[in-house]
Design a protein around this nucleic acid. Structure first.
Length: 354
DNA sequence: AAATCGTGGCC
DNA sequence: TGGCCAAGATT
């Protein structure tokens, strides 16, 4: 079988030439020129960035990456952090299981691997929060091993390059095979980042800039005039709407009543306001008997698979009321709204300006 | 293996 | 404005 990558200037070489010229400077990235002169990436920073980048844009990750690496410069530092501090630092970034697994992983690497990340794809795959993509990303980017990254960018680029009509996610194995055939033995780390950069900038979902693409000539979807239509995707299910109540109580000395949510499920491990269940018609479940006042305005928030409308109830927290099961009194000085997941912060904002 | 799991930006 | 989309993992 003819290998497209064996052409005079192979496909992987074409995109590496482009990457050498256009690679974006990213906080966790070793530039192609630095890499060429022997600079090696820090596996801790590559791992951290890749976990943060799961289903998350570069723009959203940048500040979080800086705060994490400033506060916890090494995997050992992160491993010895308090759970609540890590969850608070992750607040707002979403998909909070990532933060829980991040901490688990840091502790496994520190306690069982002497602080050194595994250097093989299979070794990395065993760690919490590291799946097929992230294992390949760390292998290639941090260790320059010829593993194939398959993320949304690579799926889109391959679907277009080879004009694949089969819809995602079913077409994933086929796209993985095509991507693997292109992965070069030389500079696999730069190559992996090059394809993803291409997908993130030129080969964008809606209006790809085919005119300036390093793969404009070999791209089959472009020849067929179908680039912008691919990849096809199986339609998504509609989102139902759920409702709920949250209860915000502050004492005259400034203390707040909050709860630490259980580790499993939505917003697991995060700080939040006590509240009802979220359903079509939830029963009010105030955390203690009081004259709760309805703030009036509603918090509207959309999660991955449902819309939420939250009714915000407020009252004064009695000075000597001891919090029930799982509820916490937190001093004003120890409470930062930025520690809350976004939906809970919206409820806070509704009460206290902003 | 289909469902679950956040959030912000974009058009 | 509402759906789509983002360097996916877990169960």
């Amino acid at each position: 079988m003819r290998d497209l990558n064996d052409d005079a200037l192979g496909l992987s070489d074409q995109i590496l030439v482009w990457y050498d010229e256009h690679a974006r400077a990213l906080p966790w990235r070793v530039s192609p020129s630095d890499r060429a002169s022997g600079v090696t990436p820090d596996p801790y920073r590559i791992w951290l960035s890749e976990v943060m980048l799961q289903q998350t844009t570069v723009a959203a990750v940048k500040d979080y990456f800086h705060r994490f690496t400033h506060r916890w410069p090494t995997v050992q530092d992160l491993a010895s952090a308090e759970d609540g501090d890590v969850m608070g630092e992750w607040a707002g970034l979403g998909y909070y299981a990532r933060a829980r697994n991040l901490l688990k992983c840091a502790r496994v690497v520190t306690d069982e691997y002497a602080g050194v990340f595994p250097t093989t794809h299979d070794g990395l795959l065993k760690l919490p929060g590291i799946g097929p993509y992230t294992a390949a990303a760390i292998s290639s980017i941090a260790y320059d091993l010829p593993e194939t990254v398959l993320d949304g960018n690579v799926e889109r680029v391959m679907a277009r390059l080879y004009n694949i009509d089969a819809p995602l996610p079913g077409a994933k194995p086929q796209l993985k095979t095509l991507a693997a055939a292109l992965t070069p033995d030389r500079r696999p780390g730069d190559y992996a980042q090059a394809v993803m950069d291409l997908g993130a900038t030129i080969c964008s979902p809606k209006s790809p800039a085919c005119g300036i693409c390093p793969w404009r000539d070999p791209c089959l979807a472009r020849s067929a005039g179908k680039a912008a239509e691919l990849p096809k995707k199986t339609p998504k299910k509609p989102k139902p709407t759920r409702r709920g109540h949250v209860y915000l109580a502050q004492a005259s000395n400034g203390e707040w009543l909050l709860e630490r949510r259980p580790d499993k499920g939505l917003l697991g491990g995060m700080l939040g306001w006590p509240g009802s269940e979220w359903s079509e018609a939830p029963e009010p479940t105030p955390p203690f008997a009081a004259n709760w006042r309805d703030l009036g305005g509603e918090v509207r928030h959309t999660f991955t698979h449902f819309h939420l409308i939250l009714q915000v109830m407020v009252t004064e927290l009695p000075p000597h009321h001891s919090p029930a099961d799982g509820h916490l009194r937190i001093a004003a000085n120890d409470f930062r709204p930025s520690d809350l997941p976004t939906v809970m912060r919206k409820a806070f904002d509704l009460w206290h300006g902003q």
